[in-house]
Design a binder for these strands. Structure first.
Length: 522
RNA sequence: GGGCCGCUAGCUCAGCAGGUAGAGCAACGCCCUUUUAAGGCGUGGGUCGAAGGUUCGAAUCCUUCGCGGCUCACCA
């Protein structure tokens, strides 16, 4: 880590130390409700915390990185992208941890969503300590915190009412209950005995009973109280939040007051991160609509380092778009440039160098490579992959990639191939014609041109793109063809399309064998 | 109504520990007669939303205003 770094992650690390003082252990927290596929907007929070955690650790601090799964939240709505919609609908109003996995694999709906993300986070080098809130609540781990809220319910109500449009009722209780009979949250807490005991009545099944907070698994604090209670319990020093929480009167604001006045602790250092939009794939991110873009979707197209780069290189409090269109190529080029700057292979200004280096470090899944990795521009990679019909091993062989670099590059190649298949514009795609396919019908002039080209290709032994380009124009002149006609003729013969990559370079990349094989029939 | 973010070259944006305005794309030009999607080199182009203020110096800090967007005031 460079001491002069002004990367936002380092700035927040410093701020945490400054505001919380020197501590033996700093706790950084993040979390989300797995009420559906965890989308890339939620990922922004985890990676933001991860970057700050790394910054703190690099300053020699011990850090606990918590990731809370708020799986004791209510299942409110069936997301459009889930299978078995009707079946899931039956479980609305239950805690999501008690909704069955619609895929029938995991122990619950919540677990399915959690597992999907946990596996992917590991791939991008994020390994927090997961906390499963359902387990906490259901073992009454928060009984004391709930009792505390009940004892101070009038103060809490006053605090919450400050920003509410309609005040909470006189008999409001700062606790909710999942009916032990029908498991729904359609209950009303009717009384509290001033100690550990609360009574409730369920409006769905008419069940009514009295619970002991120390033994029940049914009681839960509402979000705005749950959050500060956990801050105090877990001694959270840092936790960012999305803009939906960060407005004045939003949940961070009220939690800040509640943690101070009720739980006698200080709110964590925080910042607001903005939302993420998607370019080239349309639709707004939302876990309840069908258009969910998950970390998995992003990893289909961006290798893990580049995913990290995307977030490490962007200030968290501004909105940015993740692109699936042609920008993908540029992002990769930017990353490669950042890498060259890090390894001193490209000159930039001092200020910029410091910044790029830090971004590069934070973009690594694990450690920074010892030597400058083998680079291959994605554009070129796309062409090679198409020439080799997506055979990654063949491409890596062709490039003579060193053994220790193959794994990393094959990840990139897979991403490039996925991008080509799913997102690349039609113009960008091609499939070389098979040598076994029937020759095209051509007229005499065209035949002459193709024959000449065949000769040129056979004779070329020291491939030089510029030289070959000149010879191509030589053929055009000799055959008195229009350049456009000549080029589209050759593209038709090679890839069955009217247009294609710049011809000279493309012929060289395809190779003499391949091109010769296709030309010799004419 | 409150809070937050944005307003910089034709377009998309970077720059924001204050120190002579940047990138990519587009445009234009050149790369031995070169007009092919992805090549190379180069050029032009901006009163940095507006007005004040702090400063030797502000796109960068402060204040006010305008326009656009998001968000809270239900639940999480």
């Amino acid at each position: 880590m460079n001491q002069a770094s002004i990367h936002w992650a380092d700035i927040y690390a410093d701020k945490i130390i400054r505001e919380k003082g020197e501590k033996d252990l700093y706790t950084c927290a993040s979390g989300v409700t797995p009420s559906g596929t965890v989308h890339i907007g939620n990922f922004r929070e985890v990676i933001s915390v991860d970057l700050v955690v790394r910054a703190l650790r690099e300053k020699g601090k011990q850090v606990r990185f918590l990731y809370s799964w708020d799986e004791y939240d209510v299942f409110r709505k069936v997301p459009a992208n889930m299978p078995n919609q009707e079946k899931l609908t039956e479980y609305l109003r239950r805690p999501i941890t008690l909704v069955p996995d619609p895929y029938g694999k995991e122990k619950s709906y919540a677990r399915h969503n959690e597992k999907q993300l946990e596996e992917l986070l590991h791939l991008v080098g994020i390994d927090p300590e997961y906390i499963y809130q359902a387990a906490r609540y259901r073992t009454s781990a928060y009984a004391a915190g709930i009792k505390r809220a009940l004892e101070r319910k009038d103060t809490i109500r006053t605090l919450l009412d400050e920003h509410r449009s309609s005040p909470l009722p006189e008999d409001w209780m700062p606790v909710s209950v999942f009916c032990t009979s029908c498991l729904r949250d359609t209950t009303e807490v009717t009384s509290w005995n001033g100690d550990w005991s609360i009574s409730y009545k369920c409006s769905s099944c008419n069940n009514a009973e009295t619970l002991d907070l120390r033994k029940t698994e049914a009681a839960k604090l509402p979000w705005r109280i749950d959050w500060p209670m956990r801050w105090a319990l877990e001694k959270v020093d840092f936790e960012p939040a999305g803009k939906d929480h960060h407005s004045e009167g939003g949940s961070f604001d009220t939690s800040r007051k509640i943690v101070a006045q009720i739980y006698e602790a200080e709110a964590p250092v925080t910042f607001q991160y903005d939302f993420i939009s998607i370019k080239g794939r349309g639709g707004k991110i939302s876990s309840s609509s069908g258009e969910v873009i998950s970390l998995g979707d992003v990893l289909e197209v961006y290798q893990p380092e580049v995913v990290r780069y995307l977030f490490a290189g962007t200030r968290p409090n501004t909105e940015f778009a993740i692109s699936f269109d042609l920008d993908v190529l540029k992002i990769y080029e930017d990353y490669d440039k950042c890498e060259r700057v890090y390894f001193g292979q490209e000159d930039v200004g001092e200020k910029k160098r410091i910044k790029e280096k830090r971004i590069y470090e934070l973009s690594q899944v694990h450690r920074v490579p010892e030597r400058m990795p083998f680079q291959i521009p994605v554009r070129h990679l796309c062409n090679l992959l198409q020439i080799h019909s997506g055979n990654i091993t063949a491409v890596l062989d062709f490039l003579q990639v060193p053994e220790d670099q193959r794994e990393r590059l094959s990840v990139r190649a897979e991403c490039a191939w996925n991008w080509l298949q799913t997102y690349a514009p039609e113009d960008f795609r091609f499939t070389p014609r098979s040598e076994k396919s029937d020759p095209l019908k051509v007229n005499d002039t065209e035949r002459k041109a193709l024959n000449q080209l065949y000769q040129v290709v056979l004779e070329m032994n020291d491939p030089d793109e510029k030289d070959l380009a000149e010879r191509l124009y030589g053929i055009i002149t000799d055959c008195e063809m229009e350049p456009g006609d000549f080029f589209s003729l050759v593209y038709r013969v090679l890839i069955g399309k009217e247009k294609g990559p710049r011809l000279a370079g493309f012929i060289l990349t395809l190779g003499r064998e391949r091109v010769g094989g296709l030309l010799k029939k004419y």
